[in-house]
Write a protein that binds this DNA or RNA. Structure first.
Length: 892
RNA sequence: GGGCCAUUAGCUCAGCUGGCUAGAGCGCUACGUUGACAUCGUAGAGGUCAGUGGUUCGAGUCCACUAUGGCCCACCA
């Protein structure tokens, strides 16, 4: 196969993915390999309505890197994909479409027909996001794709519901809930966002009963809710109102008599110190009302208009009522004043409309008992959350957990599996119940099923095991549960992560305690921000579409860039051009591979032929061994960035910059042992590098691996995706080789520095460069000088015997070697002098620091002996260089 | 009102449990290559590591406070 000079991702990605699919490369073998531990990830199911955003792209990359890594390491690897039915979001999308296209509301269509429409929509559009995950290269087992509303999931959801019901952990209650007046459903605490809004603070006067002219002023932001007031509260220690507690007020408009009560929760310093109590429409008031036995009055309809309880204001919208209430009070002389006021208003995440706290009948799950094991999970280490600081967030929520309102007044979702008899006595059932059949307890006929559906999270909290077939004890459940890794966004630590842990402990009671936690590591990935550090959002229009990036740079470059840019626990600011890093690197790999393969023409069948004895061969193999260990350790510890960085440095700075250059002249030697070894080493290093790269750049590494095997004549169609992770006897760290090559690099560097100094002085090239090596370094030079010649800058180098000291204008030192430079004519001595002086100053500072350190007893006695020795060596070196530079300076 | 996170080169960021003369990529400058690489290589300029105090033989790294920016939680009507 001919490789183009520039890597073109689009020429390969589609084909490669297709080959993986045809080979079933992502589906675990029927039987788990002997002795292989599972490595399982459940994808956080994206909404079916969703399109891939940068957060998905990052998260998908991280999960894929790990799954591919562990698959290659021989673990029984599985990554289960799927989507979430996302009750409110999906229903809203379809409702909107229905109205736009047919001018119909869901009510006009009817429940059954509407749900049918949603399914139609799902079949048509619901796979989009999973397709996009494929573009990214995700190696999910697509044969196991799940959907949170499919029939098997319904069984799981019912099993969970009924189990909790039987344990008395589910109850129906009138509670104040967050009501979304647009979507006309209850939403959970976690779906509410507090948004700062400018508004007014109204001071209302309520007359005291039987006390002509006496009034109490309350401050409120919601004057229209005064119609639902059933009391006024003051702080018991507030002297202003002491005498009034126990007296009665008369509510304007309605003439309702309401008591003044004393309650600690009232802040005497806010407003007037007196607060109206509206238990039906304010969570805090609900609590206060309950403490004082005040009645709960609901003055709102489900759409947010006022109901008949509101007397003259019935039927008005909230906004209209507010206006009219104020006007009315004004007329009555009961509006004291209105102030500007900024406060936080609860807004529904889903409809973006203001939440109305409303008392209504809902289903709740008692959370406290479920929370205990989830708290224990992190305390015992069964669950590790990374970065660690999120543990506290997780625990804080669990330790103060509120009961979970699980009913939603929607149609798209799992219907609450509760049926009622004619007296309204409920019971929960795993099976559908026929209308008319007898209630198992009361014996009376069943008349209806509960109309509500369950919160979406009431299915997704079962995800880690419902995807494996639970409640049946399937082979998959046995083999793949619990999972090892969950990677998700911080926003859903409460909504999802904590609840999955609870569900695992509560519902998988056939398993021993230590196997119930659904995942052992929960990784909270970075948030992807825009270039200015703002959150990407549709409404702000600052989002970057990952598919555009893939289109432009290729999936591998995007994956690599994301991993290189993201360090654990730190958000990442992203601009499209940051993908350049990945693009350049993938192009570099491509060309290095091309070069290697061009030199492997012919009959070679064995990778890594010959025993390397030459320094550079030993060196690169040692570096390869070290890099292999680094990448392996990094990925085992979920340090993605470290792994990618180690590879980047190895491939680019060691392999391409040095090894390929050093080996070029040998490659022309035909059949010499030296040439053979070079070719073998090249092939081995390339092949191993491709394996290490595969988790990060799966497409490109697969293409190059195929090409390499073909070139070696060793191809039998095997794919890199299933290759074994590098390990073994050929890869050992050779410290001597690394140290020796460091000397060479340093030497070359020193020559370049001296040369650069003169070039700074004037662009004149050097008249001559002479090196007088010590006996020790001479050995190393002899070994590699010929190869080093291949480097352009070394072609000017002449090696002299020690002791032959040529006249020099500048002298440098490197690894015990003196480097003499004689300057050509026309050098700007002033500039050279300046440069040298700066260098001297820097060195003086350095030596002073080192001397101080070594003069310090504490350091010498307590520090690691190696560190002290290194410090001495460093000082000596600096002193030597300093001395030479001073000599240079005085000679100028 | 609590809590968390950041602040290191012009830009984006690395610097793990305190210990080489504080690094990388991009950008900039110079030179060299253009027979693996519509490039690549080498070198250079550029930093009082936000500020103040403390612990220590030694602090970018640990502690306290301050400043700036960002995020999360919370029933102040």
């Amino acid at each position: 196969m001919e490789l183009e000079t520039r890597y073109d991702p689009h020429a390969h990605e589609g084909d490669v993915y297709e080959r993986w699919m045809q080979a079933g490369a992502f589906t675990p073998a029927k039987e788990a390999p002997e002795g292989a531990d599972p490595f399982v990830i459940m994808i956080p199911p994206p909404n079916v309505t969703g399109v891939l955003h940068m957060g998905h792209a990052l998260n998908g990359t991280l999960q894929d890197v790990l799954v591919r890594f562990h698959r290659m390491r021989g673990r029984d690897a599985l990554w289960v994909p799927g989507t979430d039915h996302a009750g409110i979001a999906t229903q809203a999308v379809v409702e909107k479409k229905l109205f736009a296209e047919e001018r119909k509301t869901r009510q006009e269509l009817g429940r059954e027909a509407f749900v049918e429409r949603v399914w139609d929509w799902k079949e048509e559009h619901g796979n989009k996001i999973l397709e996009q995950f494929r573009r990214l290269g995700s190696s999910c087992d697509w044969t196991r794709t799940r959907f949170t509303l499919e029939p098997d999931m319904s069984r799981a959801v019912r099993e969970a519901f009924v189990t909790l019901w039987e344990r008395d952990l589910i109850y129906r209650g009138a509670r104040i809930v967050h009501w979304d007046c647009v979507l006309q459903t209850a939403v959970s605490d976690d779906e509410v966002e507090m948004v700062e809004r400018k508004s007014k603070l109204y001071y209302l006067k309520y007359p005291v009963k039987d006390a002509a002219g006496e009034q109490v002023t309350v401050a409120t932001t919601r004057p229209e809710t005064m119609l639902g007031d059933t009391g006024v509260a003051v702080n018991p220690s507030d002297e202003r109102y002491g005498a009034l507690v126990g007296k009665t007020l008369v509510l304007p408009f309605l003439d309702r008599e309401i008591p003044i009560v004393a309650d600690d929760s009232v802040d005497a310093s806010f407003g007037t110190g007196a607060v109206k109590v509206t238990p039906g429409h304010d969570p805090a008031d609900y609590e206060r009302g309950a403490r004082h036995g005040l009645p709960v009055l609901n003055v709102l309809n489900r759409d947010g208009t006022l109901n008949e309880e509101a007397g003259p204001f019935a039927g008005k919208s909230r906004e209209q009522a507010r206006k009219e209430v104020c006007e009315g009070l004004e007329e009555l002389g009961l509006l004291e004043k209105v102030e500007d006021y900024v406060h936080n208003v609860p807004i529904s995440d889903r409809s973006k409309s203001p939440i109305e706290p409303l008392v209504s009948e809902q289903w709740f799950v008692k959370m406290e008992p479920l929370a205990q094991p989830a708290i224990q999970a992190v305390k015992t280490g069964a669950l590790t959350i990374r970065p660690e600081r999120w543990t506290k967030v997780y625990l804080d929520w669990l330790e103060n957990v509120q009961d979970w309102c699980i009913s939603r007044q929607l149609w798209w979702g799992h219907r609450v599996p509760v049926w009622y008899d004619e007296d309204g006595v409920p019971f929960a059932s795993r099976e559908d119940v026929e209308i008319g059949s007898p209630h198992p307890k009361t014996g009376k006929p069943i008349v209806r099923q509960d109309e509500d559906v369950l919160d979406t999270w009431a299915s997704s909290w079962l995800w880690p095991f419902a995807t494996l077939g639970w409640p049946d004890k399937t082979p998959d459940l046995e083999r793949f549960y619990p999972t090892q890794f969950l990677s998700t966004a911080r926003e859903i630590i409460y909504l999802w992560v904590a609840r999955m842990v609870m569900a695992g402990y509560a519902l998988l009671d056939h398993l021993p305690e230590e196997k119930r936690c659904p995942f052992s590591t929960c990784y909270i990935h970075a948030t992807v921000l825009d270039a200015k550090g703002k959150r990407m959002s549709k409404s702000a229009g600052n989002g970057i579409d990952p598919l555009d990036l893939i289109e432009q740079y290729g999936a591998d470059a995007v994956r690599l860039s994301l991993v290189l840019l993201t360090r654990e626990g730190q958000d990442v600011k992203l601009a499209p051009d940051r993908m350049e890093m990945g693009r350049r690197f993938t192009n570099k790999i491509w060309n290095a591979a091309r070069f290697v393969m061009q030199n492997l023409e012919g009959e070679r069948t064995e990778v890594g032929a010959g025993t390397p004895t030459l320094l550079e061969d030993r060196w690169i193999l040692s570096r390869l061994a070290r890099t292999t260990a680094e990448v392996t350790e990094a990925l085992e510890g979920f340090r993605f960035n470290d792994g990618a960085t180690a590879l980047y440095k190895f491939v680019w700075n060691d392999f391409c910059d040095w090894y390929l250059e050093l080996v070029k002249s040998r490659l022309g030697e035909g059949d010499s042992d030296s040439a053979k070894t070079a070719r073998g080493t090249l092939a081995l290093v390339l092949e191993t590098s491709l394996k290490l790269l595969h988790p990060f750049t799966p497409f490109q590494s697969e293409v190059l691996y195929g090409a390499l095997r073909e070139r070696l004549g060793a191809s039998n169609g095997e794919m890199l995706v299933r290759a074994a992770w590098p390990a073994g006897e050929r890869l050992a760290v050779d410290e001597a080789a690394e140290a020796d090559l460091d000397v060479v690099r340093e030497l070359v560097g020193a020559v370049r520095s001296i040369r650069a100094l003169t070039m700074v002085a004037d662009r004149m090239p050097l008249a001559a460069l002479v090196i007088a090596p010590s006996a020790e370094t001479r050995r190393v030079l002899d070994e590699c000088h010929e190869r080093a010649r291949a480097l352009a800058f070394l072609s000017q180098l002449e090696v002299a015997e020690a002791g032959e000291r040529p006249p020099a204008s500048a002298v440098g030192v490197a690894s015990g070697m003196e480097v003499f430079v004689s300057l050509g004519d026309g050098v700007d001595l002033e500039k050279l002098k300046e440069t040298l002086e700066r260098r001297v100053a820097k060195l003086e500072k350095g030596t002073a620091g080192a001397e101080g350190k070594l003069a310090n007893k504490g350091f010498v006695e307590r520090a690691d002996p190696d560190v002290v020795q290194a410090e001495r060596d460093r000082l000596e070196e600096m002193q030597g260089e300093l001395e030479l530079l001073r000599r240079n300076l005085s000679g100028l």
